[in-house]
Each structure stands twice: as structure tokens, then as C-alpha cells.
Design a protein around this nucleic acid. Structure first.
Length: 792
DNA sequence: GCGTTCAATGTACCT
DNA sequence: ACAGGTACATTGAACGCG
């Protein structure tokens, strides 16, 4: 019997001493199924030394005591482009593979063992061309559901599945949840603090709240939550920070109160697995917080600010309750409803973010081949790597082991010093996807590199400028093939998108897919230069930037020779005076001489530069202000400073009136001194980049973090600390408090005037001759205005 | 002993 | 835990002065 299914999740189990792959799927009919594949043999490679005879090696190995080996196969493969003979060693116990590989490395004639570090499930997926979040067909027979798996049917696979060309996603059941814990000793601990409130929502519109009674006994809450999950039987569970917080807490708490947390489809408990994701057998656990990094505009990566950014729930319309205050809200009869409302809003945010994110997550999973519950937690480098592994297999390239590499920096891109001040009518030209384009054009790939000691091959080489790294022209390296594939796929998707209604379900899926393709394409250069990469290839990255510098330098020269004033440039772009005819001419000349396409990206009606690189603001014809690098878009400046600078830029660029801007700043400062701005606009957020003890110098956010920790609130590396500068004496770091512990009365307003608002404003206004003193002015308002008026 | 100078430290940004 | 290039605030030790 043939079954057609969409692959939701995959895991492996050991049954009667034999490994089997479990494929969790959804059929067209909506049936949830489990397909068990029993006879997939895993393997690793023993790579033979150049002079060695592989069959001799096989003979020798056969005499050793390796009971799990079931067979050998001598094959031709490549390693970093060099042909090698390899012995594929099949084993019936996947778990013993690393041990055998280690032993085999010592055999005479064996250069190395490879791919022993690829887990059984991933081996299965790659070798059979099975991709998660995609439709497949498979020959199966029905099997008795002896284990009581919570699916409609259990099948036994007769053959590996084959992919079906279909892009649609079945109707998935999604359940989101959010929890609150009661504690007054700092960060809640499952050993001592109950889960007082769990809010649950589904994509079928249900919303439920499980709340403890007055005795705060959470057994019923936990049980009801687990029962409700099983009743709804979701395919996907979503939350925010669930892998590191909610799931471990729930598991521990249930253990403590003597309940089994049964929320999966196979009667096991949630367990932490690779990349730190929590695995819930038969379902997919998605931590939405893993996807906030795709939006660098979101500075503070909390649920509420992510939701605010996506436009699903405005923070300004909410009463936010920080962890520090949960117990107070619970204990105060008048405030408890607010806590419930907060929890309900949180789970609503989660559901709406899921709606906005899941299409992308699904497409990224499908493109990289990483299961949906891994793909979020996997770092950018891993995502590229898994994508490349599939490409490598097609090219018969062996997957190298990850080897510890020393960090060796190399030269990157060129940035021009801008001409400070305001320029009007400025065109921005740029090379789209410059590094991927260069990598394709010059066949930059780990398997095409010709080292300095090697002779030039017959087909010739491309030699990078400056660094002189050489890459064979033929055949195409697997990076080139991979990048060409990605670009072709993206073009296909875009043409498909133009055929369907914008905003339709199909359009959204296609758009999510082209975004996933873009993410992988753009990360490929960085991957090549990453020392953690299996295919770390410094010459590839170094040659890409060298060609990039060559191209942009020549572009600047061509523009100048054509009489175009070059105002600024960074990596792959140039800012020139907008003269369409000349731009047309140089575009053609660049294409002809450099073989790369430069395009008009946008025209600024006016653009403002400081003396510094990477910081400017431009006014677009539609009236939108684009701000780059300046304090406005920096998350480590207080909101008041960002707001004042944004307004100054707007006045300067739209009204061309620095004087008006200066007066605005003076008024702003008066309001600040009168405490007219919300307290939260004074909070400064900075990331803890290492454990507090490891800092070489005292720093404000670290001191604030220590104060939080003293009160029991644990922070880990990567967390952002929000602090307030309070009145007092001494160093800055001696005058800060976590914002949750501070009140408006303690604030050192003069710090915010002198070190936040004024510097942010002066950054822009000093170009127009306005000084800090003028903005601060003298004591009375009249005098301020007069001195400024006199100045002009 | 005290104020100034400046390299080092730390964070976040740009492409 | 994708790269290098860059700006800027703050710290803290060295430096200069007398």
C-alpha cells in the first residue's frame, strides 16, 4: 500500500536491540500517522591512504572483533576536491559507529574515518533524500499499534520514502502556552515555586487558563495542562523561551509533585536533545524566541517587544508585569485579574507570532533538511552546514570532521569616509548578493582551491587579487552548484509569486520559502570563513573579500572618471550624486569591465552624514526617514536619547532647520527635567556577554546584573540587563540600579541630559555649528531662546 | 596627591 | 557558535605637575 504524507517529525528508537527510524506524518486526509522504518543500515567511511589497497584493508578489518559490522563497500569519493578511495563500513548498531571509527583510524592504510559523527536519523534523511516539512510517498503495510502511539495508524515501511513535488502545507494543529510561577526568592525554581497559572491557546480559537487555588497547590494545574495538550493533540507546540525555561521547569515541577508530564504521542516525557531543543516525541516543539534574531530591528528580544514589532499586540496598550512583580500581583486581590489578563495576552502574542513565523520556520526546515524542532535552535552556521551536506553528497564529497582551528583574521571589505553634512539628490547603487555572486563567478569552493604548492591544473585557475589564492575553473565546486541552485530556486519562487494573489495562502508560503533561501545564500560566505565550519576554508572567504575590494575600488574609479561625485560607499555600495544619464553609463561600463551587475537601489532626496563611517540618515521620496548606525537605532541608548535624535534628524532633513531642531532639544530637556517622560524611556539595556566574574573592568550593566543576582534573579550570558542611572557620587557603575528595583525619584536626570539626550542631539547638530553649550543654554528658558536666536 | 591622557575594554552596529 | 570593519562610552593605569 502507498501512503502519501507530509513529514512532521522524525526520531529513532531502539527496538529489540535494533535501531529503527520513526517518521511522523500527516496524510492528505488529515490522518496522523507513524511510519516505522526498520531496515536502514547506518555506516561510516574509512578513507584509504593514497597508496593503500582498500580490499587489503577490508580483509584486515574483517579479522578484528567488530561484531556490529555487517558489510563493506569500496567506493570512490572526494575530500576537499581530492579523489579518495573509501570503505563504507555498515553497522547494525548506529550507536557503536563513533567507537568503531576511532578504532579503525589506527589500521594500517587507513588515513582517517569520516561521517561517524552524523547521527542515525540525519543519516537516514540525507541518504534517502527525505526532507522534513515536505510531502513524500512510501510503500507501507499497516502494523498493530501495540505501543498505544497517539496517531490514527501505525505503518511499517517497505521501502524508503520518495519526495513528492508539492509545496502546500497541511492543516496543522497548533497549541501555544505561557506560564507564570510564584516565588519571592528571585528566579522561580521548580523545587520550591509552584506554577500558578498556565495559559493555553490553539489555532482553532480555544483559550484556557489553568489557575491554582488559594493554597497554590499546582498539581491540578499541571495535570490539567498535560491532559488538555493530549486532548487537543497538537502537531506543533509553541511558546517563547520554552526550551530553556518552560519545558525544563514543567518537567522538574511535575517530578517534584509526582505527576508524569505526558504531552507527547508516545508516552515519554519532554527531553532536551541536540542544539538544546526540547524534543516531544511525535510533535514539534517550536521556540519562537529562536526566530526573533531574524529581525535585527527588534533590539529587546522579549515576547512583548517582538509582538509589538510584528504589529500583533502593542506594548503601549498593555500593562506589563515583570517576573519580579508576579508574586505581588498574585497576592493582591485587586491586581490578580491584571496578572490573568497579562498571561492571556502573552499566549495571544505567542499564537500570533507563531502565525507570522511558522511558514518561514517550515521552509527553513525543508531547505536545510533539519527537522522543524531543530532548525530554530540551530545556529546560522549549522543551518548552512546541513544544507551543504546535502549538496556535498550529490557531489560525492565526504563530510569533513569539525577540527579545532586557530583564529586567523583576514582582510574584509572597504568602507569610504563620507563627506560630512547634508547632500541632496543622492543615488545609492549596489551589487546585489555580492559575495555569493563572486563565489559563483570565480568558482570559490572548498573543493576547488589549488594550494600554493600545487601546480596549475590543465583547465586553468582564477587567481584572486592581492591574496593570490587560486581556484580551478572546472569542474564547478559544490559551493558554486549550491549557490546556483539557491539563486535559481529563488527566481522560480518569485516568478510563482507573481502568478498568485498577493496575500493568499500560497503567496505566503512562497514568500516564506524565498526568505529561507535568502538566509542560507547570504550566510554562505560567512560560513566559509568560520573556524567552526566542517568546510572551513579561509582562502575561500579571503578570496571573496579580495575580489569584493577589487570590484568596489574599480567601481569608484569608473564613477569618478565619469564625473560622478562619490559621497560614500560600504562593501558593495556607492552613494553618488543622482545623475541618471551618467549612472546609466557607468552601470554598463561596470557590467562590461567587471562582469558584475550594479543596480540603482534607491534615491535619497537628501542624506545626512556625520564625519564617521557607517552612520547616516536619508530621506526617501515617500517621506520615510532611513536611519543607519546612529543612536536612534542602537538598543543600548535610553529611549529618550533615541527619540530626541530621531526628531532632530526629521526636522533637519525635512524642514532643513537646525535652529528649530535645537529649540526642540531645549524644550525636550526641560520636559525631561520635569519628569514628563515615562520611566521606562530611561532604561538602558545592555547584553551580558560573559559571566559577571569574567569582566576585566567594572561596567554598569554588570553591576546591575550583580544586584539582580543578589536578590535571587539569575541572568545568563546573552541576557539583556535593563538599568537606570541614579543620583549619587563616584563612577557611573556605582550609580546604577536594575530598573525593576529603581523608582523615578532616584533617577539622576542630569546624567540623562548630559550623557544621553545632549550627545545624541549634538551628534547631528554639531555639523550645523550648534554646540552642547547652546543646547544646554543658561538657566532660564527666555535666555536659552535668546542666545540661540542671537547665534543665528 | 590630583587632574589629564590614552590605550584597553565592552557593546552594538553595517554590509 | 557565519565574516570583518567601524563608532563610541567608559574604565583605569600611566603620566605630568609641582
Amino acid at each position: 500500500m502507498i501512503v502519501r504524507f507530509w513529514l512532521l517529525d522524525v526520531n529513532s528508537e531502539v527496538e529489540n536491540g535494533k535501531s529503527e527510524v520513526w517518521l511522523w506524518g500527516i496524510e492528505d486526509s488529515g490522518k496522523r500517522v507513524l511510519i516505522i522504518h526498520r531496515d536502514f543500515l547506518s555506516y561510516f567511511y574509512a578513507v584509504a591512504e593514497e597508496e593503500a589497497d582498500p580490499s587489503f584493508i577490508v580483509q584486515k578489518i574483517s579479522k578484528g572483533d567488530f561484531p556490529s559490522v555487517t558489510g563493506f563497500e569500496v567506493v570512490n569519493r572526494k575530500l576537499f576536491g581530492k579523489p579518495v578511495k573509501a570503505i563504507k563500513v555498515y553497522c547494525n548498531d548506529p550507536n557503536i559507529i563513533p567507537k568503531y571509527a576511532k578504532a579503525f583510524r589506527d589500521f594500517e592504510g587507513v588515513k582517517d574515518c569520516l561521517e561517524d559523527d552524523i547521527r542515525y536519523v540525519m543519516r537516514y534523511l540525507i541518504d534517502n533524500n527525505v526532507t522534513p516539512c515536505c510531502w513524500h510517498e512510501i510503500e507501507v503495510e499497516e502494523e498493530a499499534n501495540v505501543l498505544g502511539i497517539e496517531v490514527d495508524t501505525v505503518y511499517l515501511a517497505k521501502k524508503p520514502p520518495t519526495a513528492v513535488k508539492r509545496i502546500d502545507v497541511p492543516q496543522l494543529r497548533i497549541l501555544g502556552f505561557s506560564m507564570a510561577c510564584y516565588g519571592r526568592e528571585g528566579s522561580p525554581k521548580p523545587e520550591r515555586n509552584p506554577a500558578i497559572l498556565i495559559s493555553v491557546a490553539t489555532n482553532q480559537g480555544d483559550e484556557k487558563h489553568f489557575v491554582v487555588g488559594e493554597n497554590k497547590d499546582d498539581r491540578l494545574v499541571l495535570q490539567a495542562f498535560a491532559d488538555d495538550v493530549r486532548r487537543f493533540n497538537p502537531d506543533i507546540l509553541v511558546g517563547y523561551g520554552v526550551n530553556e525555561r518552560d519545558w525544563p521547569y514543567l518537567v522538574e515541577r511535575c517530578r517534584k509533585v509526582g505527576i508524569k508530564l505526558n504531552v507527547d504521542r508516545a508516552k515519554t516525557e519532554p527531553h532536551t536533545s541536540v542544539y538544546g531543543h526540547v524534543s516531544i516525541t511525535g510533535r514539534v516543539d517550536v521556540n519562537l524566541a529562536d526566530f526573533v534574531d531574524e529581525f535585527p530591528e527588534v533590539k529587546l528580544k522579549t515576547l512583548e517587544s517582538f509582538a509589538d514589532y510584528l504589529g500583533v499586540m502593542k506594548t503601549s496598550e498593555r500593562t506589563l508585569i515583570s517576573d519580579v512583580d508576579v508574586a505581588d500581583y498574585w497576592d493582591d486581590a485587586g491586581k490578580r485579574e491584571a496578572l490573568k489578563k497579562f498571561s492571556s495576552e502573552n499566549v495571544q502574542c505567542i499564537m500570533r507570532i507563531a502565525e507570522a513565523i511558522l511558514d518561514f520556520a517550515i521552509q527553513l526546515s525543508n531547505l536545510t533538511g533539519l527537522p522543524l524542532d531543530h532548525v530554530g535552535t540551530a545556529a546560522a552556521g549549522s543551518r548552512v552546514e546541513w544544507f551543504m551536506m546535502k549538496q556535498a553528497r550529490d557531489a560525492c564529497e565526504l563530510v569533513p570532521r569539525r577540527v579545532e582551528q586557530p583564529y586567523r583574521p583576514y582582510a574584509g571589505a572597504i568602507v569610504l569616509k563620507p563627506e560630512a553634512g547634508i547632500h541632496s539628490d543622492v543615488a545609492v547603487l549596489d551589487f546585489k548578493s555580492m559575495y555569493p555572486t563572486i563565489m559563483i563567478k570565480y568558482n570559490l569552493s572548498p573543493d576547488t582551491y589549488v594550494s600554493a604548492k600545487e601546480p596549475v591544473p590543465a583547465e586553468g585557475v582564477y587567481e584572486a587579487p592581492e591574496v593570490k589564492h587560486r581556484f580551478r575553473k572546472e569542474p564547478a565546486g559544490f559551493y558554486k552548484d549550491a549557490l546556483l541552485y539557491l539563486i535559481a530556486v529563488r527566481d522560480d519562487i518569485r516568478s510563482e509569486m507573481s502568478k498568485v494573489a498577493a496575500g493568499s495562502r500560497e503567496y505566503m508560503v512562497l514568500d516564506a520559502r524565498q526568505k529561507a533561501v535568502k538566509v542560507i545564500t547570504n550566510a554562505s560566505y560567512g560560513y566559509a570563513g568560520w573556524i567552526g565550519a566542517r568546510w572551513y576554508a579561509k582562502p575561500v572567504a579571503e578570496a571573496a573579500t579580495a575580489w569584493g575590494r577589487h570590484i568596489i575600488t574599480n567601481t569608484i574609479e569608473i564613477a569618478r572618471k565619469a564625473g560622478l561625485k562619490v559621497i560614500y560607499g560600504d562593501t558593495d555600495s556607492i552613494f553618488v550624486k543622482n545623475e541618471p544619464q551618467k549612472i546609466g553609463e557607468i552601470t554598463a561600463e561596470i557590467a562590461e569591465k567587471l562582469g558584475l551587475e550594479i543596480k540603482l537601489d534607491k534615491v535619497y532626496m537628501s542624506v545626512f552624514f556625520t564625519e564617521a563611517k557607517k552612520r547616516y540618515a536619508g530621506l526617501l521620496p515617500n517621506g520615510r526617514l532611513e536611519i543607519v548606525g546612529l543612536e536612534v537605532i542602537r538598543g543600548d541608548w535610553a529611549t529618550i536619547a533615541r527619540n530626541v535624535q530621531e526628531k532632530v534628524l526629521e526636522i533637519v532633513l525635512k524642514e532643513n532647520s537646525p535652529e528649530k531642531a535645537a529649540k526642540f532639544v531645549q524644550l525636550f530637556i526641560r520636559k525631561l527635567r520635569q519628569k514628563q517622560f515615562p520611566f521606562r524611556d530611561l532604561v538602558i539595556w545592555k547584553t551580558l556577554t560573559k559571566p559577571a566574574e569574567e569582566y576585566a573592568v567594572k561596567a554598569s550593566h554588570v553591576e546591575a546584573a550583580k544586584m539582580l543576582r543578589k536578590a535571587g534573579w539569575e541572568l545568563t550570558v546573552g541576557d539583556k540587563v535593563g538599568y537606570i542611572v541614579v543620583a549619587g557620587s563616584g563612577r557611573l557603575y556605582e550609580r546604577v540600579k536594575p530598573y525593576v528595583f529603581a523608582s523615578y525619584d532616584e533617577v539622576d536626570l542630569e546624567y540623562y541630559v548630559n550623557k544621553q539626550v545632549v550627545p545624541a542631539a549634538v551628534r547631528v547638530l554639531e555639523s550645523f555649528g550648534i554646540t552642547e553649550e547652546q543646547l544646554l543654554g543658561s538657566k532660564t528658558a527666555e535666555k536659552e531662546t535668546r542666545s540661540l536666536t542671537e547665534f543665528f
